[in-house]
Design a protein around this nucleic acid. Structure first.
Lengths: 346, 346
DNA sequence: TTGAAAGCGCTAACAA
DNA sequence: TTGTTAGCGCTTTCAA
């Protein structure tokens, strides 16, 4: 048996009621000093460890937070996770991690499992939640925060125990492309994410196109390619581009995320082309890898660490019924200029 | 109340005993077809969801596995995590993640928390466990597997519910350095990990030194630097090297891990030096980043994905009391030749 | 094959 | 301030 000393044993040996013993262990008021000491002494002697399972059942809570993450291997998400963790230190909560591994369709199963496991709260990192899922978590009274996650609903406000944190993806990609335009590029391609990805592909494509339209630069649909957010997908998408003659290539390519941008860069270097001389490459997210890459990647930095911290604060506020001023936060991003972009040369 | 339909409600409405209802839900034999159907029908009507917390208490198990990970942001560990996940699909277990964030001293607290939470098993990724910790998990009857983790004990064999998976770190770093020697380098430096890190620094330093000694090449202690496993620590360690005159620099540097190697490369590129022309850089781990880096990093690949898969298989064997042939596996590594190393030129 | 009932170990309401 | 007791919702033993 796992340390089969129970509270009853402790109470008996200390000569107190089991209620009193429980009170001592939970630091409740209204217990005499004498009994506190007696109980604590016995706890020590018997090496008593409360049974969390019994406590969970009684309290219908687990002090556990479910995290549904798009892909742990993507530093963008693991940085947010880090932010969450840091804010959780000393709070006696734990994370149950459910990694979607970029498999968007498994999110429903993840939610079901975590709700079944009676997590006290839910965090979404990436992916997409719709009205149905919102209703499900609301019905089950699970407070939730969605970070960098697409939310498909017209009415946030119905859901009082739901918060979100994101940046304005349309505007951010608009600005990214604008930066390329300012460098004189007019032949601009886009290595995009998974088709129909509501969180990244859709809004960033809108921003991309709007920037070109506003600048009266023509959009070449052949230069817009669906790929994904990983080294590999960027690498392979760029290889497809390179099947064309160099003259037919864009002079700058905006990528859905930094990993994609770095993968694309590799394909260019392999072909003996230079970034940014032959082609400028721009990423998105602002992960550490991009900074250390050679060339360092020009990108749009999302405040990912902060996203995690704020997310966890909001979650604790919901858990503690502390009023929340702003349920839906849109944070600032920042264009970071690296060495992967340069003035148009062709 | 959260879906306050209980098994009792279901049993009553179906006109059966609560025991029978329970048997139906657990697919046990010896229940008449008639009752099975009646119960299932009511379950559907009432949208009954079993309360996991009650089940956990009753069974003294949680179908949850605690993972203590050195650093989720390090792709080496998150790849192992991926291997674990893949092997767990469909098994109805979940992960509680405890990230040490490279803070070696917080491991004891992590173990305590997870044991308190009554995880069914424990996985260690990185860091180091000693006799005391081994005794603790053994006493609590928590099966555990340690992957790429230092184990400080003379007697593995006492612990029947404990497995480990690793590579031979000494031999691997010996071979790595040998590769540099074969390229003609005799001035070889080492950007190492955190001092006294039993898992990486200690064994790899031994291998490093032995390779030089065996080749009768002198060891320059000034060229051995403690850093850590991250972009930043590699970058900064290399900047320290670069304070010296180029003539005083080694012609090749072995790094404790790929992140460190890439960080080091950045510092060189910033100084206008070329990798591998001016200095060859070699990493360790074989993560994806290293392959996509420019130049791609010559490294020692650990079978990290496989480590995770095998680890999870061993864990399930322990959980199911399936006999295990080999409790302590030492897997093969592979030297991967990239573009960050070249023949000695100075 | 089935139902009743006894816990799992804890917290919280109640009574003293 | 304290002890007693009634559950939390489930599984499993026992007797029928």
């Amino acid at each position: 048996m796992k340390s089969s000393v129970t509270l009853k044993d402790v109470a008996k040996k200390a000569g107190v009621g089991v209620g009193t013993a429980s009170r001592v262990l939970n630091n409740e008021a209204n217990v005499s000093q004498d009994k506190i000491e007696r109980v604590l002494k016995v706890v020590n002697e018997l090496d008593y460890k409360p049974n969390t399972l019994a406590r969970n059942l009684r309290k219908q809570s687990t002090r556990t937070i479910g995290v549904i993450i798009q892909n742990v291997s993507n530093p963008f998400y693991s940085s947010i996770l880090r932010g969450l963790q840091v804010e959780m230190v000393g709070k006696d909560y734990s994370f149950i991690l459910s990694d979607l591994h970029s498999q968007e369709d498994s999110i429903q199963e993840s939610i079901d499992t975590l709700v079944d496991k009676r997590v006290d709260a839910l965090v979404f990192l990436g992916s997409c939640i719709d009205e149905k899922k919102l209703k499900q978590i609301s019905k089950n009274k699970v407070p939730a925060v969605a970070i960098s996650t697409a939310i498909l609903t017209e009415n946030f406000d119905i859901y009082k125990d739901f918060c979100s944190i994101t940046i304005d993806n349309k505007k951010a990609s608009y600005e990214a492309v604008n930066y390329l335009l300012k460098l004189g590029h007019t032949k601009i391609g886009f290595i995009s994410g998974v088709e129909d990805d509501q969180n990244t592909t859709i809004p960033r494509t809108i921003g991309f196109k709007k920037a070109l339209i506003d600048a009266k630069v023509s959009i070449n649909e052949n230069w817009i390619m669906n790929a994904g957010c990983s080294y590999k997908s960027g690498y392979e998408a760029m290889k497809q581009f390179l099947d064309s003659n160099i003259e037919a290539l864009p002079t700058a390519i905006f990528c859905i995320c930094d990993l994609t941008a770095m993968g694309a860069t590799k394909a260019l270097v392999e072909k003996g082309l230079s970034v940014p001389k032959d082609i400028s490459i721009m990423g998105f997210d602002g992960i550490e890898n991009a900074f250390y890459h050679n060339p360092s990647i020009t990108t749009v930095e999302q405040p990912r660490y902060e996203m995690g911290q704020i997310g966890m604060q909001l979650l604790f506020n919901m858990l503690n019924k502390t009023p929340i001023v702003n349920h839906h936060m849109i944070l600032d991003y920042k264009v970071i200029i690296g060495n992967s972009t340069a003035k148009r040369q062709r």
